[in-house]
Simulated scan of single mutants.
Amino acid sequence: MMTDLTGKFFWYELMTSDPEAALAFYGDVVGWTSQPFGGERTDDPYHVVSGSAGPLGGIMAIPAEARTCGMTPWWGGYVGSADVDADAARLSAAGGAVKRPAEDIPGVGRFAVMADPGGAIFMLLKGSSPDGMEAPAGMPLGHVSWHELYSGDFDKDLAFYGAQFGWAKGEAMDMGEMGLYQLVSQTGGTDFPDMTGGIMPLPKEMPTPLWLFYFTVGDIDAAVERVTAAGGTVLNGPMAVPGGAWIIQATDPQGAMFALVGSKGDA
């Protein structure tokens, strides 16, 4: 049975200033394999990256027009949509914003670039194939196992994702001066194993609201060594989180922010 991806993050994309360097970095750090999509645009290819359970995203150069507008390297996430045009209109009416109107990507599907009420960017995508993608079970190596929103408007964003995508709220953890960390589930369950992410107020150290994606690795200390050896920068961690996992937040050599989740003492 194919997974219903509507309202859920399912594809992750790095736009970067140096795709080849980024491929090498994440290959070292996360263990991804890659291949050019379709083998067509050889002058400016889209590289599909795969973890242990199959493809999960892509790496590409920042488009010239976006670079001209000041775009810097960043990770974006695609949310499944049954009707991109209708969803873009609905989300805009609910307090979001359309950053790039719906258009087709030949051989891929239809997409739009959106912002939530607090200003964090995400994309909508309806694939051109009637088949969905299987969501990998558990925490397979290399895949995204946690989605974290640094929210520009905590209350509005929390209401927005719940009402528009059907996400459920789990436990809310008090972080003191940093506010609440609200656990959310894209699948509608409210117990801890069902949680797929968290929403927290934008920390004062961060310049803009954004979605941060956690890629699964094995031993977190070994992953930290790989990050620094490959030219990345660890911003925070390793720190323990509920459930026994350990996390870090980091930037890659081109400056895109990402995160890793792993364990202690496992090779």
Rank of each mutant, 00 (worst) to 15 (best):
D4W: 03
D4Y: 02
L5G: 01
G7W: 04
F9G: 09
F10I: 03
F10S: 07
E13V: 07
E13N: 09
T16M: 00
T16V: 01
A22D: 07
L23D: 03
L23N: 07
Y26F: 15
V29S: 04
V29W: 02
P36Q: 02
D44M: 06
H47R: 03
V49F: 09
A53N: 04
G54W: 03
G54T: 05
L56A: 09
G57N: 04
M60F: 02
A61V: 02
I62N: 00
A64C: 02
E65N: 10
C69F: 14
G70E: 09
M71D: 10
M71G: 06
W74H: 14
V84K: 04
V84S: 06
D85R: 14
R90W: 01
L91R: 07
S92C: 11
S92R: 13
A93V: 13
G95M: 09
R100T: 10
I105G: 00
I105A: 10
V108L: 14
G109I: 00
R110D: 01
F111H: 13
A112N: 09
D116A: 10
G118P: 13
A120G: 12
A120S: 14
I121V: 15
M123W: 11
M123G: 07
L125Q: 06
G127R: 09
P130H: 03
D131H: 13
G132W: 02
M133A: 14
E134H: 11
A137M: 04
M139P: 00
G142C: 07
S145M: 08
W146F: 10
E148D: 15
D153I: 01
F154W: 05
L158I: 03
L158A: 15
A163G: 02
Q164F: 01
Q164W: 07
G176P: 05
M178L: 14
Y181C: 06
Y181D: 11
L183Y: 13
S185N: 05
S185F: 09
S185H: 08
T187I: 10
D191C: 03
M195K: 00
T196V: 04
G197Y: 00
G198R: 04
G198L: 05
T208S: 13
L210E: 08
T216G: 01
G218R: 12
I220S: 07
D221S: 11
D221K: 14
A222D: 15
A223K: 08
R226N: 10
A230V: 08
G232Y: 10
G232H: 11
T233V: 13
P242F: 04
G243F: 03
A250H: 05
T251S: 11
P253Q: 06
Q254W: 00
V261Q: 14
S263A: 12
K264P: 02
G265Y: 09
A267G: 10
